[in-house]
Amino acid sequence: MRSPAPIRAAFGQALAEAWAGGAGALLPIGFFAGAAMLVPFTVGSEANQLAAIGTGVLWVALALASLVSMERLFQADLEDGTLELWAQEACPLFLIATAKIFAHWTVSGLPLVLLTPLIGITLQLPADQLLPAMLAYGLGGLAFFSWGGVAGALAASVPRGGLLIALLALPLFVPTAIFGALAAEPGAVGPNILFLAASTLFALAVAPFAASAALRLAVD
């Protein structure tokens, strides 16, 4: 790795695209706020019911947010040739893939972590659950975006690959969703947050290499 410039460029470009291509940071915030607002309408407004399922619904929203952004994760780079230039750089492709995944997590996953106190209070979550829930959404979001990145890289050369990405990534989301939901559950903070952290570390260890192998395939 002679120069980290392509990595910084990939990260910065993804952030800039997200900023320019919509309402900036407001878009993901609006997505999560809207998803949370729908919960009382669909399941009823009783306080104990909301507290019981509110965090679970936000996990689904987080998974969907990662899937929505994954379709364009590498497709635009493939179409305009950026990916081919990256593949020829001295800097390893898996680091660039990691940078892109991190950038998309920052844009579409991190807002949920920051919004958790606000949404949590409106969904009747106990105050001492807010911090574990934020940690769980942060870790779980990283795992979602990593596996989503693999699926996005595999489907980069497939036109209209959004549904395919969802089918590829959802089974891989299961361990994170299970441990995350258990870790964010009211009352039971224990080994589950460690299991969640372990599954996230596993995703971070495996996904960049799989994604870079898939990107090489898309470039060829």
Binding site: V150, L154, L168, P171, L172, V174, P175, I178, F179, L182, F195, S199, F202, V206, A207, A210, A213, A214, L217
Partner: peptide
């Protein structure tokens, strides 16, 4: 690539589903 990624995930999926 997908089959290998899936295969390394199978033990994790099995373990998490069992816990759950």
């Amino acid at each position: 690539i997908l089959a290998m990624v899936g295969a390394v995930n199978v033990p994790l999926i099995k373990f998490s589903v069992d816990i759950w």
